[in-house]
Simulated assay, not measured.
Amino acid sequence: MAFWVSPAGTLAILAIGWVVIRGIKWLFRRHWPAQINTWDVMAPLFLIAAMILIPAGAGQIFPWLVIGWMLIGIGVTLLQAIHNKELLYTTFFRTFWRLTDLYWVAGFAVCFLLVIS
């Protein structure tokens, strides 16, 4: 059990998650929505992997990552409301989730580097 909460274990969780998601996407290739890519489904796994690293030393930076994620949501909301003069759920959620993908990949990398250093 100690392996899965180690830095190597979180990388294994991400690799297994990637393979499972790609397999499901391949299995349901006709019914899989074209707008959803593998990274969109991997964002929660990166969040969970960063949470697993909290006891190993990532607890110092993780609350700041969550605050930054909230600020991204507020920023996307304000930007779309001001720029488009309306806030549509589909455009907001697509933009917010794509930024979430990038943010949690970087957030996990920071947590991982903090734990192994």
Rank of each mutant, 00 (worst) to 15 (best):
L14A: 03
G57D: 03
L88N: 15
C111F: 10
G57Y: 05
Q60R: 11
L11Y: 06
L47N: 04
W4N: 11
F92P: 13
I61D: 12
I116R: 14
I36A: 12
A50E: 06
G59Q: 05
G9I: 02
P63M: 06
G23W: 00
P33Y: 05
A58N: 04
A109E: 01
P55W: 09
T77G: 12
I72H: 05
E86T: 15
E86W: 11
V5M: 14
A2W: 09
R30T: 08
V110D: 03
P7M: 09
N37F: 00
L79T: 11
A58G: 09
N37A: 07
R30I: 00
V66A: 10
I67K: 07
L78R: 10
I24E: 08
I52E: 07
G73W: 01
L102C: 08
A8H: 15
A34N: 04
Q35C: 10
I61H: 01
T77N: 13
L79A: 11
D40R: 00
A12I: 02
G75F: 02
L53R: 02
I72V: 05
R94N: 12
I36C: 08
P55K: 07
T91F: 06
D40G: 11
I48N: 05
R30M: 07
F112T: 05
R98S: 12
V19E: 02
Q60S: 13
I36Y: 09
L99S: 01
A15V: 02
R94H: 11
T10D: 07
F28N: 14
I52T: 03
V105C: 09
E86A: 15
W69N: 10
I16E: 04
I61T: 10
A106R: 00
T77W: 13
D101K: 00
L87V: 08
V19W: 00
A15T: 01
I82Y: 14
D40K: 01
S117D: 08
P55L: 07
I36H: 12
I13F: 15
F112M: 04
L88R: 15
V41W: 06
A8Y: 15
W32S: 13
I54Y: 12
T100L: 00
G75Y: 02
L79E: 12
G107N: 04
M51G: 07
K85W: 11
T100E: 06
D40E: 06
P33K: 04
L78M: 14
V115D: 09
T77Y: 12
I52F: 13
T90C: 12
F46C: 01
F46P: 02
K25R: 15
